[in-house]
């Protein structure tokens, strides 16, 4: 427990039929980190999130959340170790009111009193920054797309997690909305929240990233600061590969 990672994946493998979705993936996330995971379509980014949360089971390998081995745990039990997830396609409850949406997550799953206090502050911060009202009776289906994305992030924070996995938060957002999202995520990160973001939008990644992991064909291709990754010719090849 000397060096406890917020999240650690060791040699995680997963395939579907003949398709390799995760190939010996190693991932170590320090507490308080804000990590971006990038990679071309089909690189296995969303599958990795599914594996970390237990929606899919690994074929082999191990997963640790806050030092706990969760490899064989059901999803709901993993969440109780302080992890939260937003899905790639927005999954706020469309038919329910904003108020009801925000009431569903359970803060009592927070792992300690201290995190409970921090969790509340982060949640309040998100509500304020995203302009959401806890007593709003509007059905979620009637609010704009970008607000829906913000709503799902806020819902996850309403469970007072220590670590959140956010899958393509700015998909379909305007430049201004993207910038606002990255600003809020940075603020949340500064309060000590560990964040892992999967994102396509390089503008967003430039805005927030401390460290970037590049996935390609289910493998960790390279890892480092954004400048290092961008300078890597092979990364360019992956992304621009079609141009050759």
């Amino acid at each position: 427990m000397a060096n406890q990672f917020a999240l650690e994946a060791r040699k995680v493998n997963k395939h579907f039929g003949g398709v390799v979705a995760a190939n010996n993936v190693d991932l170590k996330i320090e507490p308080g980190e804000l990590r971006c995971i990038i990679g071309p379509n089909g690189a296995g980014k969303s599958t990795l999130f599914s594996l970390l949360c237990g929606i899919q089971r690994v074929d082999s390998g191990e997963i640790f959340i806050q030092g706990h081995d969760v490899t064989h745990m059901q999803p709901f039990k993993r969440v109780r170790h302080g992890i939260g997830l937003t899905f790639q396609t927005n999954r706020a409850y469309q038919e329910l009111s904003v108020k009801h949406n925000l009431l569903v997550p359970n803060p009592s799953f927070a792992i300690s009193k201290e995190t409970h206090q921090q969790g509340r502050e982060r949640y309040m911060l998100a509500l304020e920054e995203f302009g959401l009202d806890q007593n709003d009776d509007t059905p979620a289906s009637e609010i704009p797309h970008h607000t829906l994305q913000w709503l799902e992030i806020s819902m996850v924070l309403a469970g007072f997690p220590e670590l959140v996995l956010i899958d393509e938060p700015t998909a379909g957002m305007s430049r201004d909305e993207t910038d606002h999202t990255s600003m809020v995520l940075k603020k949340l990160n500064q309060s000590g929240l560990t964040i892992i973001v999967v994102e396509h939008d390089m503008h967003f990644v430039k805005n927030v990233a401390q460290k970037v992991t590049v996935l390609h064909q289910g493998r960790v291709f390279t890892e480092g600061s954004l400048d290092e990754v961008i300078a890597n010719d092979e990364v360019k090849n992956i992304y621009l590969g079609h141009a050759h």
């Binding site: 949360c53 709901f76 109780r80 997830l85 899905f87 409850y93 997550p105 996850v156 469970g159």
Partner: peptide, 9 residues
């Protein structure tokens, strides 16, 4: 699924 990932059995 969304509800389970909020920690509910």
């Amino acid at each position: 699924l969304r509800t389970e990932i909020f920690g509910y059995d």
